[in-house]
Structures are given as structure tokens and as C-alpha cells.
């Protein structure tokens, strides 16, 4: 039978995840689970002075698809601006995973992106933060 969803890359990433760990402190962190299966993904991001992703780490527990997706996503967003992260299209992540997924498994695949975006949108705009800081200093 067709086992294409468990192609080499997915199993490799499941065995040896990329960017696995935690960043403390981080500019934004977010964690969420998939209520269907209980998979958990947390993503921590540090931005540089230009609001680009300088460091990113993910941690969690779940199936091969959700874990491989977190590795691929965190690898892909390095160097992206906060706005680019917020606009990251889910089609791009599915393309990176590159295997045909059933509807239930698409949720596994997109869990890391959901977590990343919730973190990115939840973070106050750094420009506004800077202005606020300047105002207090004044």
C-alpha cells in the first residue's frame, strides 16, 4: 500500500527534530494543543533589532506529522519579519511537508503554524512598544 505520508524526510525529522528546545526569555511564546489527539506544540521566538526572527525553538509532543511540521516551519521562518510570520500561508507549510494528508492529519500538520501565529499576533507591535518606552523615558 501507499505509505507516502511516512516518507524518509518525515521519519528523519521525527527522529531528529530541528530547532527543538526552549528559549527563555523570548519575545513571544505560545503553546496550544490539538483537542482531537492531545498533541502539544510550544514555540518560542526571539527577534532582532529589525524585527526579524533571530532565534526560534519549539517543544512538544505529538505524532510524526505535527512534529515534522514544527521542525520545517521553524526552519523556514528564520530571518522573516514579524509581518511575514503573521502572513505565513498555510499552503506553504503543507508544501514543505510535501506529502498528501487526509483532513484529520491536516490539523496535525497545521498545529505548529496555528501556535506560531497566535504567538505572533498576540505580541504587541514592537514599534508601539518602542514609542511607549520612549514616552516613559521622556
Amino acid at each position: 500500500m501507499d505509505e507516502s505520508i511516512y516518507r524518509e524526510q518525515i521519519i528523519d525529522l521525527y527522529e531528529h527534530p530541528l530547532n527543538y528546545g526552549k528559549l527563555e526569555p523570548a519575545d513571544f511564546s505560545y503553546e496550544e494543543d490539538n483537542p482531537l489527539c492531545g498533541d502539544v506544540v510550544r514555540i518560542d521566538v526571539r527577534l532582532d533589532e529589525n524585527n526579524r526572527v533571530a532565534e526560534v525553538a519549539w517543544s512538544g509532543d505529538g505524532c510524526a506529522i505535527s512534529q515534522a511540521s514544527a521542525s520545517l516551519l521553524t526552519e523556514e521562518i528564520k530571518g522573516m519579519t514579524l509581518d511575514e510570520v503573521r502572513a505565513f500561508p498555510k499552503e506553504r507549510l503543507l508544501e514543505l511537508i510535501g506529502v498528501p494528508l487526509s483532513m484529520a492529519r491536516v490539523k496535525c500538520a497545521l498545529l505548529s503554524l496555528k501556535v506560531l501565529k497566535a504567538g505572533a499576533y498576540g505580541m504587541p507591535d514592537p514599534e508601539i512598544l518602542r514609542k511607549q518606552t520612549n514616552q516613559t523615558e521622556e
Binding site: 501507499d2 489527539c37 492531545g38 505529538g62 505524532c63 492529519r105
Partner: peptide, 21 residues
């Protein structure tokens, strides 16, 4: 092996089980 992956692989052999809580 995560239960979801078990279930997906068994499905390829026509075997329906449940994975989750």
C-alpha cells in the same frame, strides 16, 4: 510511535482503530 501514526499506518491495511483520548 504516536497513536495517530499507528492508526494511519493500520488504515493502509484496512484496519480501523481509534486513536486519541
Amino acid at each position: 510511535l504516536h497513536p495517530h501514526d499507528i492508526s494511519e499506518l493500520l488504515d493502509k491495511d484496512g484496519i480501523a482503530i481509534r486513536a486519541g483520548h
